[in-house]
Design a protein around this nucleic acid. Structure first.
Lengths: 197, 197
DNA sequence: GTTAGCATGTAAACAGTTACATGATTGT
DNA sequence: ACAATCATGTAACTGTTTACATGCTAAC
């Protein structure tokens, strides 16, 4: 998927300016599809207008600079429908935190603790964000999406909170410089305490 | 994060060729960090060797083409450690399926059903993949990562299976051409059946 | 006999980001 | 005074993908 389709999808739900599309796609409820910045959104909108899939009206405001408000038309909706009909590509999940976890033996417990707490804070922030989106959604409309997201977020956070100490214990046991009471850093020799599920 | 760091992280755990690194980072246990193809991996390895962070030995095999097996050295591990010490950026989650869900009103129920079942099959495949990774991991080593992943995957799949019918009912109620028994397609007028959590 | 897998590498193309340029308003 | 928000847009850059080139083996 690309910025083009993202713009069509947003405009399908509401008229918007390039500025608003960027906000929606980085912070708002369209943040789970593609990253897009001004440098890709403005050219994409210009091209869509060129091709006749969207229309544009200029709104002058006093004080603030003028807005170019885009609207989708039926040609655009057809194009969007066509894109949507294709089988979805698999979800993408990427986590720098997991890579840190995989290389825990290179870091001391302090580093690991900081990374873990940063990560927990990030997931918490995400959960709050999703929760706030609910207010934004019309009654009964598409709230299965909201419900799906909340369920996954809650599980993730619950697990992280329940296993924080165990992760740190494990980190201490494999850390390269960790050599207290001779247990040392032979990888594989240490058994991780059973994780709570 | 980039291909460079990914290569260092993989080489921290095992010697590998460019070919193997690609497999590990697209299908294997390093698939949650960065997408990388030959076009980015080979140049990255060459540069790392150039900079003296990794070494390379040529392994001739009969029949198959020769392999260039890379190993990380202490300079490389220091560089990796430096990268890992930085606070992790937030997890990235992208889903084309969710975008389809958001635009359900543009599709008929058949399209939605196909998309949903494709998605469920993809999550199932992912779950199986993660499960198979466990056998690959040394006893007790880093299995909290495995446990974390399985917990999230299970929740996701359970939710999808429990709510499949409700999603399709909702889809039918908002589909643009859906006009049986006059209930029609006024968005917002339909209340979604309560979702099972 | 054709496809898939192993194995390396390059060049062209592309998508997208970053930084810049401009300028008014509002809040600290 | 300074930063942030609103608002548009471009140019340079970067990172990555796609397609190509090569060639041998094993499986279907």
């Amino acid at each position: 998927m690309n910025v083009r389709t993202l713009c069509l999808a947003i405009l399908h739900h509401q008229d918007a300016t390039g500025y608003e599309i960027r906000k929606l796609s980085t912070e708002g409820k369209y943040a789970y599809f593609v990253d897009a910045s001004f440098g890709s959104i403005y050219p994409a909108l210009a091209k869509l207008e060129d091709e006749g899939l969207v229309t544009c009206r200029l709104e002058h405001q006093d004080g603030k600079p003028a807005r170019k408000v885009y609207s989708i038309n039926e040609v655009g909706r057809d194009e969007l429908r066509l894109n949507l009909k294709e089988s979805p590509t698999p979800d993408v999940f990427r986590s720098e935190f997991l890579l840190i976890g995989m290389c825990a033996d290179l870091l001391d417990v302090g580093d690991m603790e900081r990374a873990l707490d940063t990560h927990i804070a990030q997931v918490e922030a995400e959960q709050i964000k999703i929760n706030e989106m609910k207010a934004d959604l019309p009654e009964g409309e598409n709230n299965w999406l909201h419900n799906y997201g909340m369920t996954c977020m809650n599980t993730q956070l619950d697990w992280l909170r329940a296993n924080r100490e165990r992760i740190l214990q494990y980190s201490a046991s494999v850390a390269r410089d960790a050599d207290k009471d001779g247990a040392g850093s032979q990888p594989g020799a240490i058994t991780m305490p059973a994780a709570a599920e």
